[in-house]
Design a protein around this nucleic acid. Structure first.
Length: 260
DNA sequence: ATGGCGCGTCAAACGCGA
């Protein structure tokens, strides 16, 4: 089962690229963030034509997540239990049934948190606390679980081309990085890091200042795996090629291949 | 050292992202 995540920065602006990417890479499950669309406005018909059913948690203008699947899904959950602001759509989850087993997939868009020292950053930490509580619940099920999305966390200096430039940014604060380590401490495996232990595995390049041309990127999109999913991990990768397209998202897709 | 872009909303700037 191939499970991918992609912050598409607006589904209306990205629908053609999204369909091309689905056709070229054929993920079984695609977790999308920043659809920037209400649920009713999501192009579910065009995605159904491409073979995907959609679990959408939309919102007007900002945020919004969607889980696409060409395998059967059930147990759809929209919204994170106990989240600090239910008006912001940042989480959708479903149980996916593959040929060789099941996998529960959570699609998340963790708050950015900038600027630091404001309520934006406290909101990020509060959202993380709710997420951690939910993760503990899910891990107790002892089943294959993939938590995929835009975490808005640069885990280590190796995950930025210029770590010094992110020193005062919410993405690289000690509290943000500590939260990522706590998730690992709960037993989750960072799939991209496991398969690509060296530097340079970036998933985001700013639109500004020629960041893409200079490979001035950061790794903030992650796929975290429960032990039962990690046991079945066969590959993980990053679809860098989409960043060179016309009208690209500033994020690129990342994916895992599981034997389920 | 700084700013530099793009999307959505809504019809001009502005909020927001990272």
């Amino acid at each position: 089962m191939r499970i991918a995540t992609w912050n598409i920065n607006g589904v209306k602006a990205r629908i053609e690229g999204l369909l091309t990417w689905l056709h070229e890479t054929k993920p079984d499950v695609a977790c999308l963030q920043e659809i920037k669309s209400v649920t009713e406005g999501f192009p579910a018909d065009r995605l159904a034509d491409a073979g995907y059913q959609c679990a959408v948690h939309g919102q007007k203008g900002f945020n919004g997540v969607a889980l696409l699947s060409r395998l059967p899904i059930e147990d759809v959950v929209t919204g994170l239990p106990g989240e600090p602001d239910a008006g912001q759509s940042r989480y959708v989850e479903a149980l996916v049934t593959g040929e060789a087993g099941i996998c529960r997939v959570g699609c998340l868009y963790l708050p950015n948190g900038n600027p630091i020292g404001t309520e934006k950053f406290s909101y990020k930490l509060a959202w993380i606390a709710a997420f951690e509580a939910h993760v503990r619940q899910r891990l107790a099920l002892e089943e294959p679980l993939v938590l995929a999305g835009d975490y808005n966390i640069i885990p280590t200096p190796m995950d930025a081309r210029r770590p010094e430039a992110w020193q005062n940014d919410a993405l690289f604060q000690p509290e943000s990085r500590a939260a990522f380590r706590r998730l690992a401490g709960l037993g989750l495996t960072d799939a991209l890091r496991t398969c690509h232990p060296g530097p340079g595995a970036y998933t985001f390049w700013d639109y500004q200042a020629g960041a893409w041309q200079k490979d001035d990127g950061i790794r903030i999109d992650h796929l975290l795996l429960s032990p039962q999913a990690a046991d079945r991990l066969s590959a993980a990768g990053i679809d860098r090629f989409t960043r060179g397209w016309e009208k690209p998202s500033d994020h690129v897709p990342a994916w895992v291949e599981l034997d389920v």
